[in-house]
Design a protein around this nucleic acid. Sequence first.
DNA 1: ATTTAATTGAAAATGAAAATCAATATCAAC
DNA 2: GTTGATATTGATTTTCATTTTCAATTAAAT
Lengths: 145, 145
Amino acid sequence: MDLKDYLKKKGLKLTKQREKIITHFLNKDKHFSAEELYNAMKKRMPGVGYATVYRTLNLLVRAGLATKISFGENITRFEPLHRNEHHDHMVCIGCGKIVEFKHPKIERLQKEVARRYNFYTQSHALELYGYCKKCRKKNISKEKK
Amino acid sequence: MDLKDYLKKKGLKLTKQREKIITHFLNKDKHFSAEELYNAMKKRMPGVGYATVYRTLNLLVRAGLATKISFGENITRFEPLHRNEHHDHMVCIGCGKIVEFKHPKIERLQKEVARRYNFYTQSHALELYGYCKKCRKKNISKEKK
DNA sequence: ATTTAATTGAAAATGAAAATCAATATCAAC
DNA sequence: GTTGATATTGATTTTCATTTTCAATTAAAT
């Protein structure tokens, strides 16, 4: 875990709260909102503060172990960042389901564009918004009524 | 302008405020935050309310003439949507500059992925975050010090 | 063990976006 | 053009996610 390196470098401390929050966050490979993560942690550590969850999440972002993503809702979500690996998202605006996908070819083309503009890419986000198969069907039947 | 069609269909009215706000928004082809647009409108129409700007912007989204985008800051931006045409963004995390680019090949590959997942795409967002040429240089010289 | 500085939880503060409401404006029907 | 039903407006308040503050606590280096 290069979190410890980061903490030491910055003169920060590894507390019980941070340890537990981070472990939970990195293991469940999901897109937590601060609230969701807070609720999950409360069970394991009654007494944790909301602010601590926020602070820890932001710490992870600063350490390069997570990113903020948005998905059109107006809350921030946090996603664990496993170095090198990257995936994009399909967000169903019907049911909220999020499907991840990888597409190396798209990634390659992105790099190509960046190069063309002399742009030094550090991260990127690609989201497709639409309807999943299920919700698509629901919509069609609704229109008929 | 198919805004009028939309309004009629929905039984909504075209007010002076809406007209001016929308004209301004659609003409300046930028990424307005509600605040920026509000400030711009205040000059032309002293007395406009903040809320009206928000409402109009959301109306445009509902009408399919604009989309919300995020760019990592935690405010919502709005972007005019010219049918069919689409572009993506490169956001400089140094100076905030936003460069638009088009890449039909990437668009095509996105459609392909969606089809593979039985996903019916309605819109999408692709953002590259990094440093523009200028900021890149600045960072390098900073590191040396 | 002592010291120093970072961290915590609780509560208050901030700020963007949405909701409320009385007054006003739009527009279709006459 | 007048009328009337209804949508819209501006001002204000409310909501809700996120951040900040601060006194008490804790990690970790000496």
